[in-house]
Design a protein around this nucleic acid. Structure first.
Length: 267
DNA sequence: ATGTCTCAGGGACTGAGA
């Protein structure tokens, strides 16, 4: 089972990339961020036509999240319960049933703009609400995957030039402490379960020829509870869509899970 | 290198957000 996350930076613009990529990779579940589409404008028919069920929570111009899955989605939840937020940044859904059910949580964590911005205060508050909610959610769903654009580079090795970025948003101590709090809920960073090339990034600024010079950050992540991490066989960043014409500024991140014992076998 | 891309409003370009 291939799970993925991709900040598409406008689903309207990136729909052809997404459909090509789904066909090329055979991804089973993908979490999208920055769809930037009101729900009435979501390209439901085009996506269903290629064999995916969809849940989405969008708004005009900004934000917007969606989950695409080859199997049905249940218990769909938009937003963090009890956290009042106009911005469409969270969507959760359950795949499968009973013991084998997997809870998928798609997040578009606020960018924060800069350390002296109100948006940074919002980011930290938002992360605190996410952490508190996930504590309960993980207790209810031992098989949980948290996928999305975290807008946090967890470590210096996730930053092309840590000295240049020191003290900036996306790498600040307070943000990294929140990422660590997620890890302390028991979640594992799927990408770091495996040896990875140095200077592996998932986002590159459109400016300064950032992608060609690999001036990137690793800010898109797949975190897995231990039950899912034990089944994780590989994780990678797929840079291919970033090389296309009119790319998103983010590349998709993937994790492959082995079937659970007894799952997918015939008798 | 205030660098690029997307979107809305409004009907050309500007500003916001990232």
């Amino acid at each position: 089972m291939k799970l993925a996350t991709w900040n598409v930076n406008s689903l309207k613009v990136r729909l052809p990339h997404l459909l090509d990529w789904l066909a090329a990779t055979g991804t089973d579940v993908v979490c999208l961020q920055e769809t930037k589409l009101e729900d009435s404008r979501f390209p439901l028919a085009e996506i269903e036509a290629v064999g995916y069920r969809v849940a989405f929570s969008g708004q005009k111009t900004y934000n917007g999240v969606a989950i695409l899955s080859r199997t049905p989605l249940a218990e769909v939840q938009a937003g963090i319960p009890g956290f009042d937020d106009e911005q469409r940044r969270v969507l959760a859904a359950t795949l499968g049933e009973g013991e084998a059910a997997i809870r998928v949580v798609c997040v578009y964590i606020p960018n924060g703009q800069s350390l002296d911005s109100d948006k940074y205060v919002y980011k930290l508050r938002w992360l605190d609400a996410l952490i508190a909610w996930l504590r309960d959610e993980i207790a209810r769903h031992p098989r949980l995957a948290l996928l999305g654009d975290y807008n946090i580079a967890p470590e210096d090795r996730d930053v092309h030039d840590p000295a240049a970025w020191a003290g900036q948003v996306l790498v600040s101590d307070a943000e990294r402490a929140r990422f660590q709090a997620l890890i302390e809920l028991g979640l594992k960073d799927a990408f770091r379960l495996f040896d990875q090339p140095d200077k592996s990034f998932s986002w590159w600024d459109y400016r300064m020829m950032g992608f060609r010079r690999n001036l990137g950050l690793r800010i898109d992540h797949i975190l897995l509870t231990p039950a899912l991490a034990a089944r994780c066989r590989s994780a990678e960043i797929d840079k291919a869509p970033r090389r296309l014409e009119r790319p998103s500024d983010h590349a998709p991140v993937l994790a492959t899970l082995a079937p659970e014992d007894g799952e997918g076998t015939t008798t």
